[in-house]
Amino acid sequence: MAKIETDQNTPTSRRDQTREKLLAASLDVFGRYGFDGASTRQLADAAGVNLQAIPYYFSGKEGLYLATADYLTEMISGHVGDMRQRVGARMAALDATGERMTPDEARAYLTEIAQTMIALFVSEKSESWARFIIREQMEPTEAFTRVYQGIMRPMIEIARRLIGTILGEDPASEHVRLRAFSFIGGIMVFRMAHAAVLAQMEWDSAGPNEVATLRKLAVELVAVLQPVKGGAA
């Protein structure tokens, strides 16, 4: 049996690389086969590392699965984290002074979010992310809790607040919550129904020109958000 190097002289970069390989491979393997369907041998082979690396770095398959959820959260945050922090900081500044964001400013922020998310969802990198998340949506585990709390909930709550401002309604209301999910669904379809989108649009792939078209669509998705005449029922 091959030995795992646990010597204190083992370069940190090598340990980090092994861990990174396992996480990247596990995101794809767990997404395709689920927790029960993926074997530790399969996970190790996909990462190109020794089987004993899994218990050494993650204390076993379950630890690797949860670490993969955290890894996924970090990956998505790397693409939207700066934007989320910037919008959040603006909201916090307004709250501190008692001011309110204008509907036009809310539309501008929501448009930026929608354009960023659409471009991300049609990219190849998001394919393995979607598989993992869809499985957790269908049969939630602790991994879903981590992804939801780490990235999904903060983004949904920002969207709710922006949409509430645009509609002139309480962001915590049932109506705004539903409108927020309807809006988000209109963006997520470009990943969840990626094959159907390409087939219907007769696109071979989502390259720069296609992404530019979808970014224009994001502007329209925000523009159609209008206050309900007479108020929400």
Rank of each mutant, 00 (worst) to 15 (best):
V49A: 01
S39P: 02
A108I: 05
Q200R: 10
A130M: 15
Q226V: 11
A196Q: 14
R100Y: 00
R100D: 13
R153L: 09
A89D: 15
L167W: 05
I156G: 03
I184L: 15
V87D: 07
A106C: 13
V228Y: 08
K229E: 14
V211Y: 03
L110D: 01
Y148Q: 04
L120R: 10
R146W: 04
A53V: 06
I184E: 04
L23M: 03
D7A: 12
E62N: 12
L167Q: 11
S123Y: 02
L198F: 01
I163R: 00
T40H: 02
V222T: 09
W203A: 08
D45T: 08
R41S: 13
A195I: 09
P154W: 05
M152C: 07
G185S: 11
T213D: 12
G34N: 01
A233F: 15
A92Q: 13
H194L: 08
A38P: 00
S13G: 03
A195V: 10
K125C: 05
D104C: 04
E220G: 03
T73H: 00
E142T: 13
A93L: 08
N209M: 11
G185P: 08
S182V: 11
V222I: 08
L178M: 15
R153F: 00
Q52W: 03
R161D: 07
E5H: 11
E139G: 03
F132N: 00
R15K: 15
A119Q: 07
E112M: 11
V228T: 14
I4V: 15
F30I: 04
I4T: 13
Q200T: 13
M188P: 02
G78K: 00
T12G: 12
I151F: 01
E5C: 13
K21H: 13
D82F: 12
D36N: 12
D45L: 08
T141V: 06
A89Q: 13
A159P: 06
G88C: 09
V189W: 04
